[in-house]
Each structure stands twice: as structure tokens, then as C-alpha cells.
Computed example of a mutant assay.
Amino acid sequence: MKTAVAPLAHEIPPAADDDALAELQEIYIEKGTPAFMRTVLALFCGGFATFALLYCVQPMMPLLSHEYGINAAQSSLILSVATGMLAFGLLITGPISDRIGRKPVMVAALFAAALCTIASSMMPSWQGVLIMRALIGLSLSGLAAVAMTYLSEEIHPQHIGLAMGLYIGGNAIGGMSGRLITGVLIDFVSWHTAMLVIGGLALIAAAVFWKILPESRNFRARSLHPRSLLDGFTMHFRDAGLPLLFLEAFVLMGAFVTLFNYIGYRLLAAPYNLDQVFVGLLSVVYLSGIYSSAKIGSLA
């Protein structure tokens, strides 16, 4: 098995011989191969589990407010602590994967997040639930920080856009399914049971991910020296355009998540007086993102 990272297709000189091109095809995973299908399906499952676990709590926030006697802002902490710890974990799990490998970090992240979700359904106190949610966010950073790096290293450059689009499509389905499943279930069962169901589904997705994702072939371990970690972090701010993209994502996602956090309170009250199951069905708008992610990734 070759371990050297192959050059990008556009970096191969025009005079390169057929052996060099053949070597490129041997190292990279190409569209249409069984390995490509396994990779896309595995990352699809990983993205599904990540966003289902992260956002499954949004439809149940009004119910949590009633059960624990807390207001809407306090109830939203069940999502905020998870996303906050996920953001913090991105600074840690990425460098760890540079040292020990992509797949081990992602597999451990998914299993840990699923088990913490199951544990959160058994917590007797609000504080206990928040602690488990913080651990879930920290765990999920191990997939969010590493998945696209894995794809960029293993997928042929011509097909990276499609592969990443399909991965983001899995994110969209996960975000929709997590909200939809819990939004419908809590009209019939307790929120504890709904969380247990989501945790079980994520555990199955983690097992599928572990079994079918191909091992890295182009990964090369890097140092965990603090200086190299700092250089890797500051590098992103030396480009004039990247900080603006970071800001744009922060504002758009912040507004988007906040809308879904509180819209349930509004629709359950007068003058709408909708049932919880109909509020949960709002997540079907995610279906448009499933198509657009794959299509735009392919066009890019």
C-alpha cells in the first residue's frame, strides 16, 4: 500500500508518462468505483448522525420549558452548549487527527456522541442533561473537523465537489430527520424516549460508518508540537477572503438556528395553536438542501 500523497491532477507535468497517471488512479478514490460508493455512503451516515444528534432537541424546547420551569432562552441552552463545545472541539480534534489518523477519530467521535445521547435521556436533572449535551458537541467535533479533510485527501480532485456535496446532503437529511423524528415522537411519548430513539439510530449509523469507510491511503502523520498547531490556525487568517467567509457563515447559521430555536414557541401559542407534530414537520424544508448540496458541489 502506498502512503505518499499523490500530486493533484493539474500539477502533473504535460510530459508525465503513463505510469505516473496510473499511480494517481491507484491512490485516489474515483467516481464510479465501489470504494467511492462506500466512502460517500459512510460520510453520508456520519453527516446524518452528526446533525440528527445536534438538532434533535429543537422541537422539544417548549416541552422542556414546561417540564423544568425554565424560559425559552434557558431552554435553548440544550442546543447552545452543544454547538459551543463543538466549535471549541474543532480546534482540538483536527490536530489530533493529523497525528493519529482520520478514520479512528471520526469513528470514536460518532460512537461517543451516540452513547452520550442515550445517557442524556436518562439524566434526572436539567444540569445533567446540559452536561451530556456539552459532551455530545465535543464528541461531534471529531467528525465535523475531519470529514472534509478525509475527502480532500482520498477522493480524486475531479470528484471532490460531488463527494462533499453528498456529504453535506447527509448533514441536511440528518438535521431534518433529527427534528422530524423527535418533533413527531414527543406528541406520543416522553422526550426521554425520543432522545433514546435518536441515540439508537446514531449508534447504528456509527457502526455502518466504521464498517464501510475505506482506510486512509494518503494520510501522513504530523507533529502535535504547539508551534505547528498555532501556525496551522493562524494560516487561515492570512488570506484576505477567508475571515469574511467565516463571518458570513457565523451570521447566516446564527440566524438560521435561532429561528428554529424559537419558532416552535410561536406556533404552539395563539393565534396558531398548532399541534407539536405539525411544528416538527417544519423540518421538511431541509429536503431542498439535500438536492442543492449535491448539485452545487457537482457544478463547483
Rank of each mutant, 00 (worst) to 15 (best):
A35D: 15
L299W: 15
A300R: 04
S76G: 02
K31M: 13
Q25N: 08
L138Y: 08
A87P: 10
F48G: 07
I290M: 08
I12T: 15
L79M: 11
A249P: 06
M235Y: 14
I263W: 12
A269C: 05
W191V: 00
V129K: 15
L115T: 10
P226F: 07
T149C: 01
E215M: 06
F256A: 01
V184I: 14
G69F: 14
S283A: 12
H159K: 11
A114D: 01
L259N: 08
L229M: 07
S141C: 11
Y150S: 04
V107P: 03
D275L: 07
V40W: 09
I296C: 04
S65Y: 10
L245A: 05
W210Q: 07
I136V: 05
Q276E: 07
R99D: 00
T3D: 09
L245P: 00
A249D: 05
T93I: 00
S177L: 11
M61G: 02
M148R: 06
L90Y: 13
H156Y: 12
I118P: 11
G94I: 00
L196R: 14
I173C: 12
D187Q: 15
S228C: 01
E26K: 13
P271V: 14
Q276F: 02
I290H: 10
S298D: 10
M123Q: 15
L79K: 11
N71Q: 13
A72W: 15
A42H: 12
K211M: 04
I155E: 13
V285P: 05
L79I: 12
G241M: 11
E23F: 13
L130E: 08
F233P: 06
A52M: 12
G101Y: 00
K31T: 02
L86C: 06
P13T: 04
G297M: 10
L229C: 02
L21V: 10
L242I: 15
G200Y: 10
G165N: 13
P95I: 04
I118M: 12
L185N: 03
R179T: 05
L64G: 03
W191T: 06
S65H: 00
A6I: 10
L162F: 09
A108L: 03
M253I: 06
I118W: 10
P157Q: 02
L162M: 14
